[in-house]
Design a protein around this nucleic acid. Structure first.
Length: 318
DNA sequence: CAGGCTAGATATTACAAGTG
DNA sequence: CACTTGTAATATCTAGCCTG
């Protein structure tokens, strides 16, 4: 029966895995997720013929079981549960369990068996590029796994589809197959813990919006200081009102928006005065000043000297 | 927290004129 | 010619106040 599409039944979504149900078991997959090292031991499709029994046993690792088709029963510790299509359960380290297919109907199973161990922290740059959030998410998920109740539930978030995703990546020799397998495993862990909903969702990382907008504005100014920039143009870029942008600059710099732009422009102008032969007119235009005489006015006001005098004292040219 | 309005302050422009 | 300074008119910005 197994391995064949039953006449009149809808197509079996995991049919393609039956060609090589244990293919992924041959791959030596291990990866880091947050602070954890995860090693894949089994990642396969298996079938229990009618009446087949797997007697009581346990593992020192985590085994994720999914029932894509058929029915049967499982005993977790001392508690018996009936199983049917679409259910899943976890057998954590040390949990004694017993599985049995229905006397008259086969039961298929998708099984992921992994070893999870905590890795040493203290890597340089361990908080860079989102590592902190990945660590927090992995911590939270694995903490939930450790406390998951020993009872089957429906696979509400379709974790078992990840078996197919991983299998296809291997079968089609997709680019990045190991990454796909890693992501599939992580998804299975996340979706399973979510289905039990034993704990409130962790709060998502949120930005300090004021600082974030300030940074956006600053970056925009640094990229475009050579063009005419007004408060309104920058505010539009950052998608806030001009008034709010003013407030943000006051808060983040202690100064004003125009003081900031002026500072950026003058910094570039000083560098160019010292390093290039361009006329002051040219330098003024290239740095967002619409005329040289206005540059003179601003330059003298801020630096107490004229552009030409500054050039004479700071020339780096030979 | 964020946007709109406002008076007063400040920045910017356009132009003229002086210097070496 | 390149640079500098000054002035008046105009544009833009700032910060307080109010509102949702």
């Amino acid at each position: 029966m197994n391995g064949q599409t039953r006449l009149g039944a809808r197509p079996y979504p995991y049919e393609s895995m039956l060609a090589n149900p244990q293919a992924l078991d041959r791959l030596d997959v291990e990866f880091r997720w947050g602070s954890y090292g995860i090693r894949m031991l089994k990642f396969h499709h298996t079938s229990f013929p009618p009446g087949k029994i797997a007697h009581f046993h346990k593992h020192s690792d985590y085994e994720f079981h999914f029932i894509p088709r058929g029915k049967g029963k499982v005993i977790l510790g001392n508690d018996p549960f009936s199983l049917h299509e679409g259910m899943m359960y976890l057998t954590g380290p040390g949990l004694m369990h017993y599985q049995e297919a229905d006397a008259f109907e086969a039961m298929d199973e998708l099984c992921l068996h992994i070893d999870i161990h905590r890795l040493e922290d203290g890597l340089a740059g361990a908080d860079d590029w989102g590592a902190r959030w990945e660590r927090a998410e992995a911590d939270s998920c694995i903490h939930l796994l450790e406390q998951l109740p020993a009872r089957p539930v429906m696979d509400t978030y379709r974790a078992m589809e990840c078996f197919l995703t991983a299998y296809r990546a291997w079968h089609d020799n997709q680019p990045g197959v190991m990454t796909v397998i890693k992501q599939s495993i992580i998804q299975i862990l996340l979706r399973m813990t979510r289905a039990y909903e034993t704990m409130p969702q962790q709060e998502l990382p949120s930005r300090d919006m004021k600082h974030y907008r300030y940074q956006l504005a600053v970056q925009f100014i640094k990229d475009n200081y050579m063009a005419p920039l007004t408060l309104e143009i920058v505010a539009e870029r950052v998608q806030i009102s001009a008034r709010q942008l003013q407030r943000i600059f006051r808060e983040q710099t202690g100064g004003t928006f125009s003081e900031y732009i002026e500072q950026v422009r003058l910094m570039h102008i000083c560098t160019e005065l010292a390093a290039s032969d361009a006329t002051i007119d040219q330098i003024a235009f290239q740095n967002g000043f619409s005329s040289a005489n206005y540059l003179h006015y601003v330059f003298k006001k801020k630096l107490g000297t004229t552009p030409m005098q500054y050039r004479l004292h700071n020339a780096q040219r030979s």
